[in-house]
């Protein structure tokens, strides 16, 4: 897994992907690059396939019965779906944040040490260091430093989601996929997650699915607009929002849609 430099490098490259759930086709010939140290947003109406696309990037769709994918999906130039790719290793390098905060029913500390432990880290001090640094990166440390041993289920929704982000960071991923991470949160918690995403961009690569167009325009560098399983338009966020090349995109952005 060579570390190539340059800010415009494509980390995950999706080309001409078709995807079926059983007989139902959910993605049609979708292409999209995810570039290093940037935030890539996916927008579009419900059921347009944006979450499906995101979940196929770290093969979470493998867990869905009857899911079939065709086309090219590369991570650093290697086919994500090739049989010699270890899917568990792939997922350590491409982490994921879910729509609903889903902390484990364990203490705050154990939630974060879970990942490092399953990958073989046992040294206590190293684990403590990981806990602190991940919580700091997730902007949660100051709120929970005195109750790391308490149940994660006692945190507020926004705190839980930041804990989930910290947990995802604990295995040191390169890419973080966020599947509507703020849809279950209030506006204040949402803006904290957005700030966090902007911070994370410096060290990580972020791809985010959102219902919220303002969110996409506020935080993302690139945006893809999807509709009915197709990628209608993909480009730099400013370009796409101010000067969309497709009429359908413009109608969606201005709310004259459906």
């Amino acid at each position: 897994m060579e570390n190539t430099s340059g800010s415009n490098d494509v980390v995950v490259d999706v080309r001409n992907v078709n995807l079926w759930y059983g007989d139902k086709q959910a993605l049609f010939d979708v292409s999209m690059p995810v570039r290093r140290n940037s935030i890539t947003a996916l927008i579009g109406p419900s059921g347009c396939g944006k979450s499906t696309l995101l979940r196929s990037m770290n093969r979470m769709n493998d867990l869905v019965d009857g899911c079939r994918v065709e086309g090219t999906m590369e991570f650093h130039g290697r086919d994500i779906r090739s049989p010699d790719v270890d899917v568990n290793e792939l997922r350590t390098r491409i982490g994921m944040i879910f729509q609903k905060p889903n902390p484990f029913p364990m203490s705050i500390r154990d939630n974060i040490t879970y990942g490092p432990r399953i990958h073989g880290v046992t040294d206590r001090r190293e684990l403590d260091a990981i806990v602190e640094s991940c919580l700091r990166k997730a902007a949660l440390y100051d709120e929970v430093r005195d109750r790391l041993g308490e149940s994660a289920l006692g945190l507020s929704g926004g705190q839980q989601q930041r804990l989930c982000i910290a947990r995802a960071l604990s295995v040191n991923p390169e890419v973080i996929l966020m599947d509507e991470p703020t849809s279950a949160l209030d506006p204040i918690a949402t803006s904290r997650i957005e700030d966090l995403a902007l911070d994370l961009r410096r060290e990580y690569t972020v791809a985010i699915v959102t219902h919220n167009m303002q969110q996409a325009s506020r935080i993302s560098d690139y945006t893809g607009f999807m509709y009915m399983g197709r990628m209608v338009e993909f480009g730099q966020t400013e370009e796409l929002f101010n000067n969309p090349s497709e009429e359908m995109t413009e109608r969606y952005l201005t709310g004259r849609f459906g």
């Binding site: 350590t92 994921m96 879910f98 889903n102 990958h119 995802a168």
Partner: peptide, 17 residues
């Protein structure tokens, strides 16, 4: 909940882990 399994698998844990 399924989400817990997904969260764990998303971090690269094996099924048994």
């Amino acid at each position: 909940p399924r989400e817990l399994r997904e969260a764990s698998r998303a971090m690269g844990a094996t099924k048994w882990q």
